[in-house]
Amino acid sequence: MVSLELRNVWKRFGKQDVLSGVNWQASGGELVALMGVNGAGKTTMLRVMSGMVGAESGEVFINGKHFTRDDVELRRQFFLLGDEPALIPQGSAIMNLATMAKLWQIDRPNLEEVAAEWMDRFGVLSLREKPVSELSRGQRYKVALVILATLRPPIWLMDEPFASGMDAQGLRTLRQLIREGLEEGVLVVFSTQLIEMVRGFAGRVTVVSGGVILHNGTVPELEEKARAGDPYLAMLMD
């Protein structure tokens, strides 16, 4: 089973510590929501997990193996979906898909069928030949999700997927995709600021504030803490 772990990770931008000795871990089949206000460190945490930015100190482990950004094999274990999807702007959805499949070294015989199905479910099948740069933000996000659904690496990291500009159909399909992934044992980590997106959906919530983890448990436990008078958590629950 896939696992992801941060050990004593410190990250600093200028003089400000964005992550201050964060210890965190999760394993396959889990859906973990990273919550916090703007600037809390959610995105930085995701980027450190993925190796997109290096930390001043601390270590990242994927499947128990020490991870560095040059370890391409381990990088193929996950797919990071940032607020702006990592797509080749002048390429079509198909071209992007083909390129990503090569980069991730995915060569399944039914790749096209799977991709077509997810394109249809996300409503971007008719846009498959258009350059990504000509698509709207929500459409670009859908294309990236199609690629994710097609490649299916064992770890999915998503930065604010529910604030990505997608329409209701896209959001509904995203939830379906995540549920399918969880059934297959995928580890899904996503960041959000909205408790509505977490209730009844995420199995675990990690609340980050000022670069430290304030809560790492279930939603009912988080609600309990908020009711107990923790002002920050109460604000998040509002």
Partner: peptide, 26 residues
């Protein structure tokens, strides 16, 4: 600005070309 195209294309319209057959733009 870009108009949202129709999302009602049937799934039967499968992708005709594989990644190898398609001529990339770049």
């Amino acid at each position: 600005s870009h108009a949202e195209p129709s999302a009602s294309a049937p799934q039967a319209a499968r992708l005709q070309a594989t990644s190898e057959q398609k001529r990339p733009r770049v």
